Computed example of a mutant assay.
Amino acid sequence: MVVPQIRAAVPADADDVLAFWKESAEGTSISDDVSGVTRLVERDPEALILAVADGRIVGSVIAGWDGWRASLYRLAVLPSHRRQGISMALLRAAEERFAAHGGRRADAMVLEANETGRLLWTAAGYEREERWRRWVKPLEG
């Protein structure tokens, strides 16, 4: 097993990130395009954290910090690299980022139907919060 490097994404990673998410992530986002990934990385260069092994992305998490909330999205690991501690290494990096900025609590967006994901988040010490629901509105633009 090759121990992956944990690093922040750069704009040049956008195509590889999208290909990785297509293979490894559950669901899609309205921002799943090169401009969306590039905009994220240019706006907050530490937000998209990657695990890279042998020059290939094998894991990702978006650790969004807006000064108020510490939000986690797109925690994904390449299927062939699962159960090797990569998710936990990515979460550790994200939580360290939040703590360094004064974050007090991290929350994660997890698809209801993603049973594997829900098990992972539970194993990482996260608890489901029943009293909240997500409300969304696509912005025209």
Rank of each mutant, 00 (worst) to 15 (best):
S60F: 03
R104K: 12
W121M: 14
S31F: 07
L111H: 06
R104P: 06
A113Y: 06
R69F: 10
W121P: 01
M109A: 05
L75W: 00
T116A: 14
E127N: 09
S35V: 14
V41N: 00
H81L: 12
W68I: 07
L48T: 00
V3W: 06
K22A: 12
V77Q: 01
D16F: 10
V58K: 00
E46D: 12
L139V: 15
V17F: 09
R43I: 02
H101K: 14
S35E: 11
G117Q: 04
R83C: 03
E26A: 11
L78T: 14
M88R: 14
L50Q: 02
L18F: 06
G59T: 01
S60Q: 11
V17Y: 04
V110M: 04
L78F: 14
E129W: 13
A113C: 08
S87F: 00
E129A: 13
G85W: 12
M88C: 03
E115W: 07
E42Q: 15
I6E: 01
G36S: 05
T122Y: 08
V10Q: 15
G67W: 12
W68R: 11
W135D: 04
P79G: 11
A124Y: 05
R69Y: 09
E42L: 09
L91W: 03
I6F: 15
A9N: 02
D107C: 02
R133F: 12
G103Y: 04
E26R: 07
D66S: 05
A14R: 00
V61R: 01
A12C: 03
G36Q: 09
S24N: 05
L40I: 13
V34Y: 04
K22M: 14
A93L: 03
V2H: 11
T122V: 03
L139W: 08
A53T: 03
V37A: 04
W21R: 03
S71H: 05
S24R: 04
A100V: 03
A53W: 03
D15S: 11
V52S: 05
P45W: 14
M109Q: 04
G27R: 06
S31C: 08
A25S: 06
P138C: 02
S29F: 14
A123S: 15
E130I: 12
L78K: 11
A94R: 00
T28W: 10
W121D: 01
I57V: 12
V58L: 07
A106K: 04
P79C: 04
P138M: 07
E129V: 13
R118A: 07
D33Y: 09
A99E: 11
S71W: 11
A123I: 08
P11G: 06
M1W: 11
E140D: 15
A106H: 01
G27L: 11
E95Y: 11
S31M: 12
V52D: 02
D33G: 15
M1S: 15
V136D: 08
R56F: 10
L48Q: 06
I62K: 02
P45M: 15
E26V: 12
S24Y: 09
V136C: 08
A106G: 12
R105C: 06
R43Q: 07
D44Q: 15
A8F: 14
L40K: 00
G64Q: 13
E112K: 12
A25M: 13
R7I: 10
A47Y: 02
A14Y: 01
A12D: 06
R134P: 00
Y73N: 01
A70N: 09
V41W: 01
